[in-house]
């Protein structure tokens, strides 16, 4: 089994990250925005793993597990917030109600 070349791995990470960012910017549904955020986080994770494999170091995998933990806690908080917003406003449209205007 040959190792994936570094540039291809990073290219995949960059593509995933860009897709996630685009999702956050384009989608208006909060749930989908949260999922796009997850994609961005995983893109970062891929970058770590690829880099770790390139230099044969365990650090990349450790960092990925850390990112996974972050993602899990972030999702739990994010979902709770979304649930509350849905109860208050009965919509998940991010543009529908912006009460935090300065």
């Amino acid at each position: 089994m040959t190792a994936i070349p570094l540039d291809q791995g990073l290219g995949l990470a960059a593509a995933l990250f860009a897709l996630g960012l685009a999702g956050v910017l384009v989608r208006r549904n909060l749930l989908f925005m949260l999922m796009s955020l997850e994609v961005m986080l995983n893109a970062a994770g891929v970058a770590f793993v690829v880099a770790g494999a390139r230099w044969a170091a365990a650090d990349g995998q450790i960092m990925f597990i850390l990112v996974l933990t972050f993602a899990a806690s972030e999702v739990s908080v994010g979902l709770a917030l979304i649930l509350l917003m849905h109860r208050r406003n009965s919509t998940l449209d991010a543009d529908a109600n912006y009460h935090l205007r300065g």
Partner: peptide
């Protein structure tokens, strides 16, 4: 204060 629109996606775009 005009930039504080309360729109999350605008903030994200700004960050990006």
């Amino acid at each position: 204060r005009r930039t504080q629109s309360g729109r999350v996606r605008l903030y994200t775009a700004g960050l990006a």
